[in-house]
Design a protein around this nucleic acid. Structure first.
Length: 272
DNA sequence: AGTGCGGCCTGTCCGC
DNA sequence: TGCGGACAGGCCGCAC
């Protein structure tokens, strides 16, 4: 399940293969993703040249000619770069073929992903416009998180996962960050102190950047764009370790649900 | 405005 | 071995 590090890894992985390339053909094999793919996508994209491949939150933005492709990998989406003649794999929904003989394939078994074509500023698109700050920028700091959390009754975990506050902190990293910060996931966001916020910000930046450096967390349905799995999963401390001993105090990690999502924490270490 | 939850999907795993 | 059901979860969109 791609989180921000996986998305960034995918973005960096496809850049050398598609930047500056001309789109020769678009193949829509299955258009029913989170939203139906615009049937005109081929008409819009073909013969356009890819200029930049950027990212906002978990959205990848591919500039092609005068328009932009906004891409989201959802829960199970992945990108691959393969030779054009490579046979399709199951759940390859879209192929974008380039003049250099390579094909960008979007594979998404659960189809929670999205591909949107826009001819206006992609950052002003309804899906992107209201997004919170990027976690790896100066704008994301202890004061910002503290101010944003005032009066919020929701749990700190759900608060951190709210993309309108900060983007890129999904379930896996929310669990990891709270474990590292020794903060209980149930704690009301509004009760965080400035010092708590500082610890959270530090750990979010640290864990996300380390995961990006290592190529993202590998889960069973994620492959980076060149098919190489990442390595971060080998060092997850809390996520997926329910019932196993806490890496710090050896107490058994506990699992609950917050906002319908698996929440793993150490009842001894995470008392704050 | 903030909060909670249903819905979209398929692969995997578990119990019978 | 086959089958049904629970579970996994990002994030929109709606109801309160």
């Amino acid at each position: 399940m791609p989180e921000l590090p996986e998305v960034e890894t995918s973005r960096l992985g496809i850049i050398p293969h598609i930047q500056g390339q001309n789109v020769e053909k678009v193949v829509l094999r299955h258009t029913q993703l989170r939203w139906p793919i615009n049937q005109e996508l081929g008409v819009k994209l073909e013969h356009q040249t890819i200029s930049t491949i950027s990212r906002r939150g978990k959205y990848i933005i591919i500039k092609a000619g005068h328009g932009n492709l906004i891409l989201h990998l959802g829960m199970s989406g992945s990108l691959r770069i393969v030779p054009v003649e490579m046979p399709y794999k199951k759940h390859d929904h879209v192929a974008i073929n380039f003049s250099n003989g390579l094909s960008l394939r979007l594979n998404d078994p659960r189809r929670f992903g999205a591909i949107i074509w826009t001819e206006t500023d992609p950052l002003q698109h309804a899906l992107l416009k209201a997004l919170g700050v990027e976690p790896l920028t100066e704008a994301f700091n202890d004061n910002y998180l503290f101010e944003a959390s005032r009066q919020r009754k929701t749990s700190v975990k759900q608060f951190l996962m709210d993309s309108h506050i900060v983007v890129g902190v999904g379930n896996i990293y929310a669990n990891e960050v709270l474990f590292a910060a020794k903060i209980n996931p149930h704690r009301a966001a509004g009760k965080l102190t400035l010092a708590d916020c500082k610890i959270l910000v530090t750990n979010i930046k640290k864990i996300l950047s380390l995961a990006i450096k290592q190529g993202g967390t590998t889960l069973r349905d994620f492959l980076s764009s060149e098919g190489k799995p990442g390595y971060f999963s080998q060092q997850l401390q809390a996520y997926g370790r329910s019932g196993l001993p806490c890496p710090h105090c050896k107490h058994i990690l506990k699992t609950t649900r917050l906002g319908q999502r698996a929440t793993v924490y150490c009842p001894v270490c995470q008392k704050k």
